[in-house]
Amino acid sequence: MKTRPPKRLLGRRELVDFPAFALRGVEAKVDTGAYTSALHCTDIRVGPGPGGQPGLHGRLLDPDHPGFDGQDLFFAEFGRRDIRSSNGEVQERYVIRAAVRLYGQEFLVEFSLSDRSDMKYPVLLGRSLLRQGRFVVDVARRNLSHKAEARAAARRAARPAG
Rank of each mutant, 00 (worst) to 15 (best):
E110F: 06
N143T: 04
L130H: 01
D115P: 10
A153Q: 10
S112N: 11
V95A: 03
Q53L: 08
L73A: 14
P160M: 05
V137I: 14
G58A: 12
T3R: 06
D138Q: 08
P5R: 15
A153L: 08
V139Y: 02
Q71K: 15
A161W: 04
R12C: 07
A152F: 03
E149W: 03
I83Y: 07
G25R: 05
R84H: 02
A157W: 03
R80M: 14
L61E: 11
G51A: 04
L130C: 04
L125V: 15
H65A: 08
E92H: 07
E92I: 08
G33L: 07
R13S: 11
S145V: 08
E14A: 09
S114N: 08
V26S: 06
G49F: 01
P160S: 05
K120M: 11
Q53R: 13
R97Q: 12
F78S: 08
P6E: 12
I44Y: 10
M1Q: 06
D43Q: 15
G49L: 05
R131M: 09
R59I: 14
A157T: 06
P54S: 11
R101E: 13
D69S: 14
G52C: 09
A20P: 00
F75D: 03
S114R: 10
D72Y: 06
A38M: 09
L108E: 13
P66W: 15
V139H: 00
L124F: 02
Y94Q: 10
F75K: 09
F78V: 04
D138C: 01
N87H: 06
D118A: 10
C41I: 15
D118Q: 14
L102R: 01
L73T: 14
L23H: 05
L9A: 08
S145D: 09
H146E: 03
L23W: 07
A34E: 13
S128I: 07
E149R: 08
M119K: 11
M1F: 00
K29E: 04
L113N: 06
G67R: 15
R131H: 11
A99C: 04
G51D: 06
G88A: 01
F111R: 08
L10S: 03
D62Q: 13
D31I: 11
H65N: 13
P6A: 14
H146Q: 07
P122S: 11
G58W: 12
V16S: 08
G49D: 05
Q132V: 07
P5H: 11
I44L: 15
L39Q: 05
V46A: 07
